Computed example of a mutant assay.
Amino acid sequence: MSALPSLRDARGSGPAVVALGGGHGLSATLSALRLMTDRITAVVTVADDGGSSGRLRDELGVLPPGDLRMALAALCDDSEWGRTWRDVLQHRFSSDGALDRHAVGNLLIVALWELLDDTVEGLDWVGRLLGARGRVLPMVSVPLRIEADVVHADGARERVCGQVSVATTPGRIEHLRLEPQDPPACPEAVAAIEAADWVVLGPGSWYTSVMPHLLVPGLRDALHRTSARTILTLNLSPESGETEGMRADEYLDALHAHAPELRVDAVVADPGAVDDVGELGAASERLGARLLLRQVSRGDGTPLHDPLRLAAAFRDVVEGFLGDVGTRADDAR
């Protein structure tokens, strides 16, 4: 594949892009966006209650740092310095003691939070250590708990609490909630969305990483106010538990059910992950969005996004809308 034409302007900066999500899905988006622009803000979900993050959250009462750490690692400087510190951040201890499976980066982030007593400043310090190409922010200022109403195959309903449980409980998720219900949005995240040129939502764990952002009133209102265009990136395969058996168009319907006023301008999907292109096209139209079908998966058959291919798809979306602006200007003349 040829090198990706950059969208950076003469100053080398590029459009201001805010990426919403968490975990591996957000990392994939950030790895693609960094090929297009230097003006990236990652707004990260903070509901994780498992593994190293869950243990630190329970023991110290802090935001779960794991998804924040992964976003910072994805934005590290492409140099020996940046890559080395990325690897340090991602390193996990292996022992028979209390440090087993703790990520070094999680401990570093929490240490900075305690020293500085400022969540955002602590993350900015880690970003400086990595030479990060962008900024990483939590979506809210307090740890979140995700709750869901799950309908099982036999019709029985269950209220499931906690991100890990929601992500792994078999059944169809009907309704998603956050606890607390009206968490305070991170002010810097709100400001970034309002000032953005583009907002990218997804891919990722649909109910536990992508959609929680839309349930935070401050973020939801900022998405309604902003003049930024929104790109929705679909997953490459359903996840066991939370989205098992879902078709591509059902991802969009679930999003619309929880955030009916959200404006979506473009939907990016890999043709290999779409059961019915017609249904997905119709679902995209219901959101007022254009559907862009592009191979964005890796060539080895694994259900992982390829950064260069995903960046090319984002570039096509952006240039398509820029072309529309140019066409309208020509028509006006």
Rank of each mutant, 00 (worst) to 15 (best):
E59A: 15
V62A: 02
I40V: 15
D58M: 04
S31V: 00
L63R: 06
L72M: 10
R57A: 02
L68N: 03
V44E: 03
D78A: 09
T45W: 11
L30M: 13
L30A: 10
A32S: 13
R39S: 07
G61Q: 01
A42E: 15
R69W: 05
L68D: 02
D38K: 12
M36I: 15
S31A: 15
D38Q: 15
G50V: 08
V43M: 12
R34D: 12
L60T: 08
S31D: 14
D38L: 13
D49P: 03
A28I: 01
V46R: 10
G50F: 06
A28N: 03
L75D: 09
L75F: 08
G50L: 04
D67T: 10
A47T: 14
V62W: 02
T29A: 09
G61E: 03
P64G: 12
S53M: 12
A32I: 08
D58G: 06
P64L: 13
P65F: 05
A28L: 05
E59N: 06
C76S: 14
G66I: 02
T41Y: 09
G50R: 06
D48Q: 10
G51N: 11
A32Y: 08
S53I: 11
L30H: 06
L68F: 08
I40W: 08
L60D: 07
T41P: 02
L30N: 09
V44F: 13
G51Y: 10
A71Q: 01
G50W: 05
L75V: 05
L33I: 13
S53N: 12
R57C: 06
A73N: 10
V43P: 05
L75Y: 07
S52D: 02
R69Q: 00
T37F: 05
D77V: 01
P64E: 13
A42M: 14
D67H: 08
R55D: 10
T41E: 05
L35V: 12
P65D: 03
M36Y: 02
D58Q: 15
L63F: 05
M36D: 11
